[in-house]
C-alpha cells in the first residue's frame, strides 16, 4: 500500500466552495478515476483521505495537497490523468507522488494579498501594519476565543505602492497545527479600521514552509 500526495491549485470558481466540499469533490474524483484506491475496512467502507492545511472559503491557493492510499503502484502521469477531468473548474492538479513531509511539519504559509479601495486609505493600512507594534485582533476557534497580536505571527511583510485603487503585499503567516493564523484576520482588521471591503480582497496562499521557514517540497 502506497500513500500518494496529490498537489493542486484552488483558484477561480473553486474559491467559492468550502474545505468540506473540497473533501467530497476529491472523494468522488478518486472514485471516478478508477484508480486502485484503498478503502478503510470498517462497517461503512470509505476512502481514506487527509488534507494537511484547510483553506478558507474565498481564498486562492497555489500549494494545496491531499493524501490517499493506493493498493497498487501507479505512475504520477497515470494518477494525474485519471483525476484530471473529474474535478470542478478551478481545481488544477500540479503533481502526484510520495509525501516528503507530514502535516505536522508545516509551520508557515506565505500569502499574497490584494486590497481594493482608495489609494490613500490603502497606504494607511500598509503604514499602520509597518509602524504599529501591535495589531490586535480576536481569534476564534472551535475551542476558544482569544485576543492576539498579529505582529507576533507575521514576518517578511512586503508591500508595494497603492496604484489605481489596489495595493498588493506578501507576508509569511504562522500556520499549521499550532498557531494557525488565517490571513483573513489581517484583512478583517483593515476592513474594520479603515472601512475597506474585506470581501473584495484577494487572498492567495503561495507556499508553505516548515521549521525556520524551510521549504517543504
Amino acid at each position: 500500500m502506497n500513500t500518494i500526495r496529490v498537489k493542486f491549485n484552488k483558484v477561480g470558481l473553486a474559491i467559492y466552495f468550502s474545505h468540506l466540499d473540497l473533501q467530497r469533490v476529491m472523494m468522488r474524483a478518486l472514485k471516478m478515476s478508477g484508480l486502485p484506491v484503498w478503502y478503510s475496512m470498517g462497517y461503512n467502507p470509505h476512502i481514506y483521505m487527509t488534507f494537511p492545511l484547510p483553506l478558507s472559503l474565498g481564498q486562492e491557493s497555489f500549494c494545496e495537497s491531499f493524501d490517499f492510499r493506493l493498493t497498487e503502484e501507479k505512475s504520477e502521469e497515470e494518477i494525474l490523468n485519471a483525476l484530471a477531468d473529474k474535478l470542478p473548474r478551478g481545481i488544477e492538479l500540479t503533481a502526484a507522488g510520495r509525501p516528503t513531509y507530514e502535516a505536522k511539519d508545516i509551520r508557515y504559509a506565505k500569502y499574497e494579498i490584494n486590497l481594493y479601495g482608495d489609494d490613500e486609505i490603502l497606504q494607511g493600512c500598509i503604514n499602520d501594519f509597518i509602524r504599529s507594534a501591535s495589531i490586535n485582533v480576536t481569534k476564534t476557534s472551535k475551542k476558544r476565543t482569544e485576543e492576539i497580536n498579529l505582529k507576533d505571527f507575521i514576518t517578511d511583510f512586503c508591500a508595494g505602492k497603492p496604484v489605481d485603487g489596489k495595493v498588493s503585499f506578501t507576508a509569511i503567516f504562522s500556520a499549521g497545527q499550532t498557531n494557525n493564523i488565517n490571513p483573513a484576520l489581517l484583512v478583517g482588521y483593515f476592513a474594520e479600521k479603515y472601512g475597506i471591503d474585506a470581501n473584495s480582497a484577494d487572498i492567495k496562499r503561495l507556499n508553505i514552509f516548515g521549521e525556520n521557514i524551510s521549504v517543504l517540497q
Binding site: G12, L13, A14, Y16, F17, D21, V25, R28, A29, L57, G58, K86, L87, P88, R89, G90, Y116, D197, N199, S200
Partner: peptide, 22 residues
Amino acid sequence: DNKLKSILLSVQKPARYTGGEP
C-alpha cells in the same frame, strides 16, 4: 468580476451561484 466576487463572499454558500461543477 470584483463586484460579484465581493457579493458572493458576503452570502451563504456562494457556490450556489458560480457553476463550474464536474
